[in-house]
Design a protein around this nucleic acid. Structure first.
Lengths: 111, 111
DNA sequence: ATCTTATATCGCAAATATACGATTAATAAA
DNA sequence: TTTATTAATCGTATATTTGCGATATAAGAT
């Protein structure tokens, strides 16, 4: 694109979009699912569960971490990851505020 | 990428990812916000509210419509759009099922 | 000290997404 | 019928994402 216009939107809009973006790939949904079920998980186990190369999984993990959806710590030669529940709660609140609360006023759809 | 591996994930994972993807740009969040507040909205009004060209807004609207987050109908020479609340409800349920329900079992984070 | 194991990072190719101007299509107004 | 208005689509440039193999890094095992 000629210019990147993302900065011209409000911070909340950007934050919500960034969170959604982190979840916008099935591989990352799958990773989050595993982490949600196990509380903690070693990178290698995730690699075994996904149909992707190790380097690709590592990249997805990095994206999730950068976006703040998960946290990770080094555990000897391994890396342990888990979900940042607080971030999810925050997103869920924002999301519901935008798209559920307002629904009450507008039941009758026009189209 | 050499190959698109998205199809190798479960349908639910793909669906959730597709929904998140539709919300993964601040412009589309902004559009959804407007529609949530107004119940219905003409394309032109949205164009006026966003810092983007008409063709770009139209493209974003198309993406939202294709992903099923909004519906639209032609109203004379204009197009009227509104949120598909059912789709949001479905997404919210899936999302909560994955990322909130399971939280109860796993309060103690490791990292 | 060397070897193994686990993970992150780099470099690259291919696929997608973003943005715009120009054009088209379709209705309303004159 | 001609003209204006509204919105969709096309073509194109650029940016970003996805994916992999190869390489680097770092800790544990021998």
């Amino acid at each position: 694109m000629a210019y990147n216009k993302k900065e011209e939107f409000t911070q909340k809009e950007q934050d919500l979009a960034a969170f959604a973006k982190a979840m916008s790939h099935p591989a990352r949904i799958a990773i989050l699912k595993v982490l949600a079920q196990r509380n903690e998980c070693i990178c290698g186990e995730i690699v075994d569960l996904l149909p992707l190369a190790q380097s690709t999984v590592s990249q997805h993990l990095k994206e999730l971490k950068t976006a703040g959806l998960i946290s990770g710590s080094i555990d000897g030669p391994r890396s342990c990851y888990c979900i940042d529940w607080k971030a999810f709660e925050k997103f869920n609140n924002e999301f519901n505020f935008l798209f559920t609360k307002l629904k009450v006023n507008n039941e009758k759809a026009c189209c």
